[in-house]
Simulated assay, not measured.
Amino acid sequence: MHRILTKIVTALAAIAALSVAAPAPAQAAESAYFVMTDITREQFVIKLTDPAKIQHARDLVNGETTDRPHVIGRILKRQAPYNPRWSYHLNTDTVDFFDQAIEVCDATIPYVEDHLDEAGGAFLPGLFWCDWTSRLVREVPAP
């Protein structure tokens, strides 16, 4: 029970840190785009600009690591040019990777789309989404 509580507290602390973190100063950053999928086999594109996160994503795609394989981030309820199939995308500044997270942020790609109007309340509080079955499958060129 103590291990479970520790994991929950750790996950909540990570979500809280993401929600209060000040945006990084504007700089000319490389952008990289990755396709993620989940248990539904649907595909969703994420954009990364942080060099360390880009490298981690490339390491995941290339099989060089299995550490923190799942994607977490804050949903923006609007379409992105690089992810046109979906009515939402992840705020690039909040995208990160995780091993385990709390259940309250877990949902599949199509489930988020189908319940987007409910996101931010009891469903995906704070608009944080952490698809437990998410995994990166490939890097794609910029649109």
Rank of each mutant, 00 (worst) to 15 (best):
D59R: 13
L60S: 09
L60H: 09
L60Q: 09
V61G: 10
V61H: 11
V61M: 12
V61C: 12
V61N: 09
N62E: 15
N62S: 15
N62L: 15
G63N: 08
G63V: 09
G63E: 08
G63F: 11
E64P: 08
E64R: 15
E64W: 14
E64C: 13
E64S: 15
E64Q: 15
T65I: 13
T66N: 12
T66F: 11
T66S: 14
T66G: 11
D67L: 15
D67S: 14
D67W: 14
D67C: 12
R68Y: 14
R68A: 14
R68F: 14
P69H: 08
H70G: 00
H70R: 13
H70D: 00
V71A: 07
V71P: 05
V71D: 05
I72E: 08
G73C: 07
G73A: 06
G73E: 04
G73K: 03
G73F: 04
G73P: 02
G73V: 04
G73Q: 04
R74G: 04
R74N: 06
R74L: 07
R74M: 11
I75A: 04
I75P: 01
I75L: 13
I75G: 03
L76P: 00
L76F: 00
L76C: 01
K77I: 07
K77R: 13
K77G: 05
R78C: 05
R78V: 01
Q79N: 12
Q79C: 09
Q79L: 07
Q79D: 04
A80M: 07
A80L: 06
P81T: 07
P81F: 08
Y82C: 03
Y82I: 03
N83D: 05
N83A: 09
N83Q: 07
N83P: 03
N83T: 02
P84R: 04
P84L: 05
P84C: 06
P84S: 03
R85D: 03
W86R: 06
W86P: 05
W86M: 08
W86F: 06
S87Q: 10
S87C: 03
S87A: 13
S87W: 01
S87G: 11
Y88N: 02
H89L: 03
L90Y: 01
L90D: 02
N91D: 10
T92Y: 01
T92Q: 04
T92M: 03
T92D: 01
D93M: 07
D93G: 09
D93P: 00
D93A: 14
T94Q: 06
T94G: 08
T94S: 14
V95E: 04
D96R: 09
D96L: 02
D96T: 14
D96A: 13
D96F: 00
D96Q: 09
D96I: 00
F97C: 08
F97W: 11
F97L: 10
F98M: 02
D99I: 10
D99N: 14
D99P: 05
A101R: 06
A101Y: 11
I102S: 14
E103M: 00
E103V: 00
E103D: 10
V104N: 00
V104P: 00
C105D: 05
C105L: 08
C105P: 00
D106I: 00
D106P: 01
